[in-house]
Design a protein around this nucleic acid. Structure first.
Lengths: 212, 212
DNA sequence: GCGCCGGCTTGACAGCTGTCAAGGGATCTC
DNA sequence: GAGATCCCTTGACAGCTGTCAAGCCGGCGC
């Protein structure tokens, strides 16, 4: 049956091409992430991004339909990675104390190591308030973060034999506010910002979980 | 003594010119505020701003040295007005209940009526993370807001005969997080966002003030 | 009433932007 | 090994941007 073999072959080739396409996309997105984190959404041109990669600016339109698609793609990629890290803490923690410390330590470490990535996230989120093209993707990322925070506080309550006394949205808002302000101080040169964040994250976790 | 009279006269003229200058500056800043709130910092050109005023684009460089000075000027002007409103609540409240309700109601009303102004504020604040030229002014505004929140929670604690159990920075971070997320939902079309904010603001006030 | 000057407009400038079409070169298939 | 397909580069485009110099006009002081 030569037709079947032929189709299989074509499938194999097609899949390989898809893989390569996705791989290069991810590669370009990674380069874009660095540049965007350095300059911000508004001040980054496609030529800037290409210059920080090993390709020319024209190729970006081969792998991304739009500047917007490129930006959302690479931020989404990064944020998905972040969520995974936090979920790792949730999965591996066996005691409330361990979870609390692990969570706070990860937040503080993230602030220290990847402040610029997060300022890009906040930039994108703010831009979505003006440009509706961004909104759907941003909302999706935002909700994934909200759920992630909820998993943490829920697990903490469970381990502590208590219950969460705030809404899912409020819990996220508090932690987001905490992180954002730590980010400002950190980027303004405040060397103690991460330590303060660590402490505040722990305190808030106990405030948010009541005895129940 | 003709010299004295002459000098007085010159002073009077000079002062009038200064007044006119300041008046027109404020007028242009008000027009800029509207346009910036509509389009965002990055997407607003000086021509856009001028078109929404009754002047031409060249005049902006007569009253402002820079696009940056114009932006910071009009946001600062607006935020100072906001702070005054909240301080009015603090001054006029005689009971903890009155303060709590007034504070929450003002926040919710602000969200409803001036959402676009506040998205501009968040935009500017985020831009300051990338462009250091903005940073000093933004930090000053941010601190004025932090102090404003602190005045509210302090007064509430005083009226309730209790004490505040979080730091000044943390209190601001929580309220800012709450407002920011309400802003997102509101601008995304969630009609109940303001009501939820009202409730959350009140709850947080009691959480932040412990018995003491 | 005359002249000056402050306030405003106009127009131009150089630079940068996203987008895309044309084409080259390598790689893979048959 | 020929041909086609894919990937990437180059170059150009039209539009927009902040900035500023040149100049006009009316109202002010004298």
């Amino acid at each position: 049956m030569p037709e079947i073999a032929e189709r299989r072959n074509r499938d194999r080739i097609a899949r390989r091409q898809v893989d390569r396409f996705a791989e290069r996309r991810a590669q370009l997105a990674a380069a874009a992430l660095q540049t965007l984190a350095e300059l911000g959404v508004a001040r980054t041109s496609l030529r800037d991004i290409a210059q920080n990669s090993e390709f020319s600016h024209g190729v970006l339109h081969y792998y991304f339909s739009d500047k917007i698609e490129l930006i959302t793609c690479c931020v989404r990629q990064y944020k998905a990675e972040c969520v995974k890290r936090y979920d790792g803490i949730v999965a591996s923690s066996g005691s409330p104390h361990e979870l609390k410390q692990g969570f706070a330590a990860l937040m503080a470490a993230t602030l220290r190591a990847e402040a610029k990535m997060h300022r890009l996230w906040y930039d994108l989120r703010t831009q979505s308030l003006f440009d509706e093209t961004f909104r759907a993707d941003v909302e999706e990322i935002d909700q994934s973060l909200e759920r992630m925070i909820w998993r943490i506080v829920s697990k903490y309550a469970e381990l502590a034999g208590a219950s969460v006394v705030v809404s899912k949205a409020a819990a996220y808002a508090f932690y987001d506010g905490l992180f954002q302000h730590a980010l400002f101080r950190h980027l303004a040169g405040d060397a103690g910002a991460a330590d303060v964040l660590d402490e505040n994250v722990q305190r808030l976790l106990d405030s948010v979980v009541g005895s129940g």
